[in-house]
């Protein structure tokens, strides 16, 4: 005979297991549908050729190129800014009103919806600064979007560098900045790289901000300057799935595009996680 408490426990744990099972099932079902329907569409030709026949045939090359440009552009801005900002916050900032304000701004930027960043990018970069609907506007908008992610990841990486290294260097009569540059930063680089890579996944997948700042429905040519409009993978998928010329006929292309996006994002995540665990092991040795 089970006591009441024991029975309750059995039921409760059963429900917890069920919940966990459902969460895992969501992951598997989503991955299953995209992968099983997408993989037959993917080929070298699909990746490296232009769309043909009003995007009902051919590949997604310009969308891949556009997404690469966005990644490069936004990282080039956000990475240095984010790392320097994290260095300031962890190594120099004194607790007080200024630091509180910075922390609050970062938290709120992190929680601001991406479509709001899109509006901001439209108002400031596209219109006010006159960059137009372009790679430049979209990259800058995405850079601001991932800035908090990079700052937080870099701060975390800096905090894992043992205090002993800093003390040892300072005790040799080395200045604070030289200590940071030669001892702290090299030790924190793997963690920072992890954060940077994770935000690549974010840039690759964001749609709403680029939709407002320069992504094009279709372009016959690749972009030739930072002021050009561009195609990008997530927007391409959206367009094909909701307003393409022939939505049903282009299903395979849609699945293929979704799978490519998923591969980029998951691949990037796996790399980031393995870099992190590799270096964690090394430090704990």
């Amino acid at each position: 005979m089970l006591s009441n408490a024991k029975l309750n426990e059995k039921i409760a744990f059963g429900l917890l297991r069920l919940a966990m099972g459902m969460v895992v099932a969501f992951v598997l079902v989503i991955l299953y549908y995209i992968v099983s329907n997408g993989y037959s569409a993917i080929s070298l030709d699909f990746i490296f050729s232009m769309p043909r026949n009003r995007m009902t045939e051919g590949g997604i090359y310009p969308a891949i190129v556009g997404t690469m440009y966005l990644i490069i552009g936004s990282m080039a801005v956000a990475l240095p800014l984010g790392i320097l900002s994290a260095i300031y916050l962890t190594e120099y900032a004194q607790p007080g009103r200024t630091t509180w304000t910075i922390e609050m701004a970062i938290n709120n930027l992190a929680g601001t919806p991406s479509v709001v960043f899109g509006l901001f990018g439209l108002a400031m970069f596209v219109k006010y600064l006159g960059f137009g609907a372009s790679i430049l506007s979209a990259s800058l908008t995405l850079a601001l979007l991932i800035l908090p992610v990079i700052i937080r990841a870099s701060q975390e990486a800096l905090l894992t560098v043992p205090k002993e290294y800093r003390e040892a260097s300072l005790a040799l009569g080395v200045t604070k900045w030289e200590t940071i540059r030669r001892i702290v930063l090299p030790a924190a680089i793997p963690g920072m790289v992890t954060g940077a890579i994770l935000s690549i996944g974010r840039v690759a997948g964001e749609t709403a901000p680029i939709l407002l700042t320069g992504a094009a429905y279709f372009l016959p040519r690749l972009p030739d300057s930072v002021y050009s409009q561009f195609m990008a993978l997530p927007y391409h998928l959206y367009v094909l799935a909701t307003s393409g010329t022939n939505i049903a006929q282009t299903r395979p292309i849609q699945y293929g595009t979704a799978l490519i996006l998923l591969i980029i994002v998951l691949f990037v995540n796996i790399i980031a996680v393995s870099i992190r665990s590799h270096y964690r092991k090394k430090i704990n040795r």
Partner: peptide, 19 residues
């Protein structure tokens, strides 16, 4: 595994939901 959910782009969720 649960973090995979965080990595999937929202447009892919939208596509999955739609189809």
């Amino acid at each position: 595994v649960t973090e995979i959910l965080a990595g999937i782009p929202s447009v892919v969720y939208g596509f999955f939901g739609l189809v």
